[in-house]
């Protein structure tokens, strides 16, 4: 049986709601299992304020992971997510603080910086034909460096109230970033699972030659996907900046690791052709619970990086192991 056919087998893992929405049931087990363990180990875990903290932490990662989901399910890759987050937060802070622009313009600048970085990625991948791995790895360095240059290596403090509200405001007692995350998730779920753009994204990831043969403009679509992914990094940068009330050039360091892990645990096929925003939201929550739990248990933050890296490798290993087993059947 071919690689593709076995991938198709995997996609029947479990479905929730609409049949266009694949959610791996294993990921729900992991989320609840992990939460149960944390709840037993720490009395603070289940407190409302802590649960809101988890949602808050998951919001930034979740928005980044949505960008990762789109690109990976088209059989692409975006390693620059974390750096572009840092760049866009600096651009937003410079616009508001140094240039003294009104805060809505700072929001626009944040999103535009992210989308622009993604646009460059897309041009280089599709027009220059450079592998996405290399292009986005290069952008990881370029965006981070540019953020440091613009900010002179220091965080830019003192943002206008309107901006800070986007990160620290709590309508109905729920942090603003959670609303932003949910809004972005609903919109991107609709696009991925119910529009032609989404259908073509999955088709390109599944079989690029087939997509091209049926008239889908693959290059143009990929360029849009990378721009979209950059835009998500811009939104994440906005959330991050508003939360900490500063444009920090080191913001989002190594976040691409967490975001890609969240997407993969959520059921996005590493080789393209399958992905769902609902699954990615669960993946982002798993990441949030993991980090929060380790914090509560006073585990040194260095170990968190190790844990997330291990989870990524394990998730891909289990996915491939399952596929091999399905093949052998």
């Amino acid at each position: 049986m071919s690689e593709n056919a076995s991938a198709a087998r995997r996609s029947r893992s479990w479905t929730l709601g609409a049949r266009s929405t694949y959610v791996r049931i294993e990921s729900l087990f992991v989320l609840f299992g992990l939460s149960a363990i944390m709840a037993v180990l720490s009395p603070y875990f289940l407190q409302t304020s802590n649960l809101l903290n988890i949602l808050l932490a998951s919001a930034t990662i979740g928005v980044l992971a949505i960008g990762a989901t789109y690109v990976i399910s088209s059989a692409g890759l975006d390693l620059s997510l974390g750096s572009v987050l840092g760049l866009s937060s600096v651009v937003g802070a410079v616009t508001a603080e140094r240039l003294g622009m009104p805060w809505p313009l700072a929001v626009a600048a944040c999103l535009a910086a992210g989308a622009a970085a993604g646009w460059v990625n897309g041009q280089l991948v599709t027009r220059a034909g450079i592998p996405a791995f290399i292009v986005t790895l290069g952008m990881l360095g370029i965006a981070r460096g540019l953020a440091l240059v613009i900010s002179d290596g220091r965080a830019i403090y003192g943002l206008p109230e309107g901006l800070v509200y986007l990160g620290q405001g709590r309508p109905f007692g729920v942090p603003m970033p959670v609303f932003i995350f949910i809004g972005v998730a609903i919109l991107t779920h609709y696009i991925l699972s119910h529009t032609r753009f989404g259908a073509h994204t999955l088709a390109i990831g599944d079989n690029e030659a087939a997509a091209r043969a049926t008239g889908i403009r693959v290059g143009r679509h990929r360029r849009r996907l990378y721009t979209f992914s950059g835009l998500m990094a811009g939104i994440a940068g906005l959330i991050f900046m508003a939360r900490v009330n500063a444009g920090d050039p080191t913001a989002g360091l190594n976040y691409e690791l967490t975001a890609i892990t969240a997407a993969i645990i959520g059921g996005t096929n590493l080789f393209g052709g399958r992905g769902s925003i609902l699954g990615t939201m669960i993946g982002a929550l798993i990441m949030g619970v993991l980090q929060n739990g380790l914090n509560l248990l006073a585990v040194q933050s260095y170990y968190q990086q190790m844990a997330i890296g291990a989870v990524l490798i394990l998730a891909v290993f289990l996915d491939q192991w399952q596929a091999r087993r399905a093949q052998a059947r």
Partner: peptide, 23 residues
């Protein structure tokens, strides 16, 4: 096409309408 040019993880109906999905 000789290799059929199908998207193997998408369902039968979506493959038939690939690139021409009615909205």
């Amino acid at each position: 096409y000789q290799d059929l040019a199908l998207a193997k993880q998408q369902d039968v109906a979506n493959n038939i309408f690939l690139g021409r999905e009615p909205v």
